[in-house]
């Protein structure tokens, strides 16, 4: 196949599929129905250190985790799915919309959380050291 045609097909195809998916509403972020759902996400990632306490954000899009081994962690949406990480070494900064968390982790370098102001204050305080 001539390269220009391949290029048009690939770029056009990718762009069109992404646009259609977005317009179909398939960019919606994961909602955690309750604490136990967010806790289950944590436990499937860290089965050796399950959640002891789960604090769900008001909008149900994220959760702060206290683990059995006394660590703190975060569960947040990866699109329709979720990711979970310990907050060890995290730098947590308040933004106008919530919190910005930086982790020393190449596979999860930045987490932007949308939180209410009072919520953001509380999470920043309990989540780790504050910048």
């Amino acid at each position: 196949m001539p390269l220009p045609i391949l290029l048009v097909l690939v770029v056009g195809g990718i762009g069109a599929i992404a646009l259609v998916l977005h317009m179909l509403g398939l960019s919606a972020r994961r909602v955690f129905a309750n604490e136990s759902e967010a806790g289950a996400v944590w436990e499937s990632e860290f089965p050796d250190d399950p959640a002891r306490q789960v604090i769900l954000s008001h909008d149900h899009h994220a959760a702060l985790i206290d683990t059995v081994q006394g660590q703190r962690g975060i569960v947040w949406p990866m699109g329709a799915d979720a990711a979970a990480r310990y907050l060890i070494g995290a730098t947590i900064r308040k933004t106008g919309k919530g919190l910005n968390i930086r982790l020393p982790d190449f596979t999860a370098p930045r987490i932007s959380l949308r939180l209410d102001q009072d919520e953001a204050d509380k999470w920043a305080k309990t989540g780790g050291k504050r910048r």
């Binding site: 195809g13 990718i14 599929i17 998916l21 179909l24 398939l26 960019s27």
Partner: peptide, 26 residues
């Protein structure tokens, strides 16, 4: 995609996930 949306089963699509997959393919 059309199949999943009309039958309401048989898989899931998400924009950024699909975009990442397609970019990896390209």
């Amino acid at each position: 995609l059309v199949w999943i949306l009309t039958k309401k089963r048989g898989g899931r699509y998400e924009t950024r996930d699909a975009l990442t997959s397609l970019l990896m393919g390209a």
